[in-house]
Write a protein that binds this DNA or RNA. Structure first.
Lengths: 217, 217
DNA sequence: AATACATCTTGACGGCGTTCAGATAGGTGC
DNA sequence: GCACCTATCTGAACGCCGTCAAGATGTATT
């Protein structure tokens, strides 16, 4: 059983007493464990082991385990932002942009299921989604809201925009969780592929279907 | 610190050596802890304590902790089924029935957030939703599918029905999770109440908005 | 009454998150 | 170059957890 090459634990030169940038190393170790063995394997002690330090070392950089997970989750949201920004830029019409945002969101969740779980688990404990989600311009929420605002043009009032964005968010998150439970293989086959399936579901959801219709006609 | 009155641990007559129906008592103890202190307080040892037995006793009735949680989750799904059946029966038009199913789903999730979490956490570990969900006639999924089938009438093919049901499910689950993160107080105020808010979001979601329009016109 | 069986307890194991006293090293002023 | 301060890391400990094996205690069967 050989561990990761980036694992500082079993290099021969055993590491200087002071690590240098342990908080960074811890977050990366956590991400590695998460991708390899899932959320249940993500104990603070395991992270410390993976980073090659004692179980107590993380406490000089994070208040507790939750704060480390917060850092991991934060990275996750940033990755998601990048992903959605790219997907949005690839499309030309507003309807396509909106669908692309939704599809890329779900694809991210499926490619990084453990990370996606941590992102929401952290929010659950604080009973609130991260602030930057509703503020940073490139945040997933703001991007969706922007496109919806543009699609709606003048007629949509503030309340409707927030409602519609919330609805879209719920739909995307719901679908992201569902694809972790079910494979939907029969549907995928009939629709000819994975992305077609995702588009199919989104088309059945008002924000997307409705908007697409409006944008395309 | 006085514990629950149903707690068998501190009755004076300390309990017969053989409990009688421990598996039932354990599930109920688990539910009590869940409602009172949330999912994080739900350790096997705590459940055993609450039921007034030793930490090892549960292993004569459940293979491991997961199997106990499965039993709790199963009860949760049944409660949800009842809730949705009632909500559906209260309405007359198909559109109203569909919206009522969605609203009652989300309300259940908010009233029993810890139980709702356990229901999905159990599914996550097995990477599949419980079978009865797609089979039992009164299951949440089947109820939604039935109404959608009726609304669609003849024109909807099998694939579209499953897609639409999946979409509705995702939307409801997504919203159910969102209300655990955000209070949406500003929106609720503007819309005049909690249920109005939920209806508002669902109206923005295709299955519901679209269906309502079709059913009402 | 004797025997088999189900059920519950006791005690133990390793792993967890967390804390605290003490070891180690880099940085600062002399 | 040296002493000191502070940040960082270690080691050992605490109480909790899930789980298991061995033994105690009732119930059921014969």
């Amino acid at each position: 059983m050989v561990t990761s090459m980036t694992d500082a634990a079993n290099t021969n030169e055993p590491r200087p007493y002071h690590h240098g940038d342990l908080s960074r190393a811890l977050v990366e170790a956590a991400r590695r464990l998460l991708e390899q063995d899932g959320p249940s394997a993500l104990s603070l002690r395991a992270v410390a082991r993976e980073a090659g330090v004692s179980p107590a070392a993380p406490y000089h950089h994070f208040k507790d385990k939750g704060e480390l997970l917060d850092a991991v989750a934060h990275e996750g949201w940033e990755m998601l932002n990048v992903r959605m920004t790219e997907a949005r830029a690839r499309e030309t019409t507003l309807g396509d942009k909106l669908t692309a945002l939704g599809v890329s969101y779900v694809q991210f969740a499926r490619e990084h299921p453990a990370l996606y779980r941590v992102m929401y688990d952290c929010s659950r404990e604080k009973a609130t989604l991260p602030e930057h989600l509703h503020e940073a311009d490139d945040s997933a929420y703001c991007q969706v809201r922007d496109v919806i605002t543009e699609v709606g043009g003048g007629p949509m009032n503030e309340l409707d925009i927030e409602l519609a964005t919330t609805a879209a968010w719920c739909a995307a998150h719901g679908l992201a969780e569902m694809v972790a439970f079910k494979q939907f293989d029969p549907m995928k086959e009939q629709l000819g592929g994975d992305e077609a399936f995702l588009r199919g579901v989104f088309t059945h959801l008002g924000i997307f279907g409705h908007m697409n219709a409006r944008a395309l006609t």
